[in-house]
Design a binder for these strands. Sequence first.
RNA 1: GCGCCCGUAGCUCAGCUGGAUAGAGCGUCGGCCUCCGGAGCCGAAGGUCAGAGGUUCGAAUCCUCUCGGGCGCGCCA
Length: 585
Amino acid sequence: MKAHLQQLLDEALARLRDEGVLPDGVAAAAAVERARDARHGDFATNAALVLAKAAGLHPRELAERIVAALPESPRVAAVEIAGPGFINFRLAPEAWLEAVRAALAAGERWGHGTAGGGRRVQVEFVSANPTGPLHVGHGRGAAYGDSLANLLAAAGWRVHREYYVNDAGRQMDILAVSVWLRYLELCGEPVAFPDAGYQGDYVYDIAADLHRADGEAHRRPWAEVARELPPDAPAGDRERHMDALIARARELLGPEGWARVHRLGLEVMLDLIRRDLEAFGVRYDSWFSERSLVEDGAVGRAVERLRAAGHVYERDGALWFRASAFGDEKDRVLVRENGQPTYFASDVAYHLSKVERGFEHMIDVWGADHHGYVPRLRAALAALGIEPERLEVRLVQFAVLYRGGEKVQMSTRSGEFVTLRELREEVGTDAARFFYVLRSAEQHLDFDLDLAKARTADNPVYYVQYAHARVCSVMRQLAERGLAHDRERGLAALGRLTEPHEERLVRTLARWPEVVESAAAARAPHQVAHYLRELANDFHVYYGAVPFLVDDAALRDARLALILAVRQTIANGLALLGVSAPERM
RNA sequence: GCGCCCGUAGCUCAGCUGGAUAGAGCGUCGGCCUCCGGAGCCGAAGGUCAGAGGUUCGAAUCCUCUCGGGCGCGCCA
């Protein structure tokens, strides 16, 4: 609908250009938008205000010229000039009713668009280190990233979802050591668990798996493990102590034993994470291993490409990338003094791989605490001759849980964080996913657990789902009365939907394709959530004011066609957010 | 100290590629159940859009500064 008006406007502007009223090449700024106030009609354009200066005319004079140049359209009932020079369009009632027809005809694809043009976009999200269970912070990234991917697909992009697995590096070594030490405890060794180790209960579970599978094959006397280690905190340095422990574990277990423990930790954690996400409605197209980049030489090749391009130098025994030449605040180390590539080096290789795999656009969803990392990655892409705009980083702010009006305290350090699984078990996947995307991602989120669990109208997810269930209930009522819905008769009689509540509901319904396009363009799933609330509200009001199951069969079928279109819209919207649309509640 | 994000109704937040009288939910107060599910609906009160300048025909929206809050500034990931 909006596109139709935009086309009419463009034709009018083109005509004025031909007549010499407007200079060439200035029409781009003119836009058609929904009127906020019903008294301003349905749509409005600021074309005359924006172009008045270029035309050398007063805005209202230009507005008159534009209106005179507009082609006729059966969908437009009235065009008027208002205020400082706005042109307001009022649509013919039939124009709105097309939305009902379109919704029922398109079904699950109602609202989907082609703005993406079939371009390939990769959305990488969550990518939490497989060193512990997902917590509620990851949950927000999961809900946001998955909904965003759904939205982009609905907007005509070819979407690939990926999880980057940080399976190389020290964090994984710490997990392996933690598992091994808990295993030694199970064997009966008097272990002093290190301060920097992973404290969570899940580590015991992995250790128990190891003990069950391999018996005491990896048992070593504690005295031998602890011999001459630098002191742990609080007396010593916990990180130095941990590094020594890692080296000791490698030495005592040998390459095979160490690899076994390391791999088991990774596999168990990844499996846990994968199942957590699946239960949360999130599925990936691929899980990309950091270690694979190291092993197949991709990291080395990325570093060499930077070197060949002349953006690398040596200092203090390390290899540096000249990031400051590409907008970053300082240069960054690629290869450490000890010969090990940094996380940054593998991340450069990883993003290079994304480009090489043919993704025209890359979206990374990160926790907001990583924002300082964006400039260096963009710098690296620029240095590799890749337009940095192809990488889009979306930062997701933290979520704070509230229960009984009190903030739920969390601390990763002590292992006292609320896991995504616990959240899911407490409030359910539907409520969790809806609440997570109710706010724009860049806003801190206050997550009210009590409200998420509430089965009342205050709870927005129930409110929306209830509208869907209510339509289903009406259809059941229809059947109980021995009646059936005749869609064709209903569509033919749409013109009889003249109640104010019907006009309002139809207009909201007709906005859906615009909502999908806008939410995808703005990377803003919360727009979908807000729209659904509004649509549900219009529906509930209509429901309370106008009976659907009337004796007049044509009118009844027209009303049912309308509410079935509403049901389809709600189902499609909830699907984008990963929330179910129940038939009864 | 430097950088990024945020500051809109009592609370939680939309609106931010500039547009007409700043919106919603909750909460508060007052109403509505012989009727398709009351898990619903209607009404009222409630605002210096943190503050000050600037750009513009027009600023919650763009720019600058100040104040307040969060985050980041490793050869960690």
